Amino acid sequence: MLRKFLVLSLLLGCFAVTFGQREKVLKLPNFDKPLFHYGFYLGMNNNGYKVSYKPSFVDKPDIEVTSSIGFNVGLIADLRLHNNLNLRFEPGLMSNTKTLVFNHISGSNETIKTREVGATFLHLPIILKASTNRINNVRPYILGGVSYDYNFSSNESSSDDNFAGKFRTKTSNFMYEIGIGVDLYLNYFKLSPSIRGVFAINNELKYDNSSPSQWTDPIDFLGTRGVFLHLAFE
């Protein structure tokens, strides 16, 4: 996941340098002067899980996690704190699907060994964005922040667990995210592509009701790890 983030960040940086060298006519010269401005964003994500284990009755736990490409959509509220520092609130929806395969469970019954975990989150991040000075129509930046995520698909309140075929996670979760991006000043709006990494702070797993459980007993921590491709229109 870190390798993907670094590669995409390098490609974005190369694109920004090329764009900045080619553009000479200054567009939207007063865009960054207002105290507030608004926008919206669209994007894609590839969110998986980081899994760490603890001692249990399972001798060698082995959980394989794969994920599908999901989508992000939301709004932007931006407050200029300084010429090179902005505070942003970016509420939105984030959705994707993960598949967990419990390889330590013996037998060939895929219904027992496999859990598909669909997730739709209300994503509420507070972001600090630190930008360089503007170079023609390009302005690179880095960002970081924390978010509260409400998982509509968690099944936390369900009485059914893995013994009934249902994998449960927590409804309320906290994340932090870091990223790199570039502001591109166009004729009528500013386009801001960025690459972001998102990392869970708390354990998202809801343990099974009874023990021993071959699905949840071996897990010490299960948390989202993901990469976003984020396109902001401001």
Rank of each mutant, 00 (worst) to 15 (best):
N202G: 13
L222S: 10
G179A: 06
N209Y: 03
F189E: 00
L11I: 11
F31D: 06
L28S: 12
N202F: 02
D78N: 11
T171R: 15
W215E: 10
N137K: 10
Y207N: 07
K27C: 09
V73M: 04
F19K: 14
Y185W: 01
S106D: 14
H104I: 04
E204C: 11
Y38F: 14
F57L: 06
F19E: 11
H123S: 10
F233Y: 05
S159A: 06
V227P: 00
S194D: 02
I112W: 01
G144F: 04
N137I: 07
N133W: 03
K54C: 07
G197H: 05
L128I: 00
P55A: 07
A232Q: 09
L11N: 01
V227Y: 02
L100A: 10
F71Q: 02
F163K: 13
N45G: 00
R115V: 04
L231C: 06
N96V: 00
T18K: 13
D78M: 03
F163S: 14
K129H: 08
H37A: 05
N151Y: 08
L100H: 03
Q21L: 13
S67T: 15
G144W: 13
G48C: 04
N47G: 05
Q214K: 04
T169G: 08
K170D: 04
F121Q: 09
P125K: 03
G223D: 06
L143R: 11
E156H: 10
T169A: 04
V227L: 12
N96Q: 07
D220M: 12
L35S: 10
N203H: 03
N151R: 10
I105E: 15
H82L: 09
E156Q: 14
V25E: 15
K4E: 07
A119I: 13
L186T: 08
R225P: 00
G181E: 00
S154A: 10
T99Q: 03
K27R: 10
D183Y: 02
N84F: 14
V17I: 15
G179Y: 08
F167S: 00
Y176Q: 02
D183E: 12
L128Q: 04
R139D: 09
F36R: 12
G118N: 14
N203G: 08
V73L: 12
L75C: 08
L184D: 05
Y41T: 09
E204N: 09
K206W: 10
R22F: 15
F89N: 03
P218V: 01
